[in-house]
């Protein structure tokens, strides 16, 4: 039984991403969407925390939201995988449930 967690807030505005990473079970997936995509950047105050959980969790980012914010994909962390909306749907259906960190 695995859960897909969606995080839609910037980790520089709220602690939602950190809470999510702390509460996730190994084998779960985290998808960063909307302002949550800032959590996918490399070399930030939160990137070590993301990398530290990347072995046990799958970390994804919604590429259309990365592009909408003008973030170069080269600046994204290596542990993060980009998906489009079709990929978002696949993540929802391939996990047993979805938890939105609102």
């Amino acid at each position: 039984m695995s859960t897909l967690h969606t995080v839609n807030k910037s980790p520089f505005a709220t602690r939602d991403l950190q809470s999510c990473l702390d509460h996730c079970r190994d084998g779960d997936a985290v998808l960063m969407i909307e302002d949550g995509v800032y959590g996918a950047l490399a070399g930030t105050a939160v990137s070590d925390a993301v990398s530290a959980r990347a072995g046990a969790l799958k970390i994804y980012v919604l590429t259309p939201d990365v592009n909408a914010r003008g973030l170069p994909e080269a600046r994204l962390s290596d542990v993060v995988t980009g998906v489009d909306y079709d990929g978002f749907v696949d993540l929802v259906t391939s996990h047993d449930r979805t938890q939105a960190w609102l």
């Binding site: 969606t6 839609n8 929802v92 259906t93 449930r97 979805t98 939105a100 609102l102």
Partner: peptide, 8 residues
């Protein structure tokens, strides 16, 4: 089968 929530 799945419930997906979008919010603030």
């Amino acid at each position: 089968d799945r419930l997906v929530m979008f919010g603030d």
